[in-house]
């Protein structure tokens, strides 16, 4: 239905900050529902924000007034927006194998929206030919 201006958008999430996760989720959700293929690669401390335990405890990294207001106004947060976008769009979410290995995090401990745990070279193969952003 929709025509995208670029075929593929890849976003690498490094920071655990709620505002960055929210910005990334907003942009990638719109991209996915506009017909773009979206591939998220979640690495370093950002991956901790995709553990079931983090979300259950609402252990978010909140810096600044905007993040505090996002929580106060109870808007759908990054993991909810991504889950919603995955249902209607072409979106894939990958956890970084390095971060998972070094921290001993298993895929079962991660949110259901994580499709797979992969390495950098596999991600490059997936992201090749599209826009890549790092946040």
């Amino acid at each position: 239905m929709a025509e995208a201006t670029a075929p593929k958008l890849s976003v690498v999430l490094v920071s655990p900050q709620l505002e960055k996760l929210h910005a990334a989720a907003t942009m990638t959700s719109v991209a996915a529902l506009s017909g773009m293929q979206v591939n998220l690669f979640i690495t370093m401390e950002a991956l901790r924000m995709f553990l079931k335990e983090t979300v259950e405890k609402r252990d978010f990294v909140v810096e600044g007034e905007v993040s505090r207001t996002l929580l106060a106004k109870e808007v759908p947060l990054y993991y909810q927006m991504l889950a919603d976008a995955k249902e209607s769009g072409d979106m894939h979410i990958y956890a970084c194998a390095l971060a998972a290995d070094i921290m001993g995090w298993k895929k079962e401990e991660m949110l259901e929206i994580i499709d797979d745990v992969i390495g950098v070279s596999e991600y490059f193969g997936i992201a090749l030919g599209g826009i890549i952003l790092t946040m």
Binding site: A2, L33, S34, K73, S88
Partner: peptide, 15 residues
């Protein structure tokens, strides 16, 4: 609903 909520609802419905 805040951005991008209304747009997302519209796109889903149009599909």
């Amino acid at each position: 609903s805040y951005c991008p909520g209304p747009l997302m609802e519209l796109i889903k419905t149009l599909k």
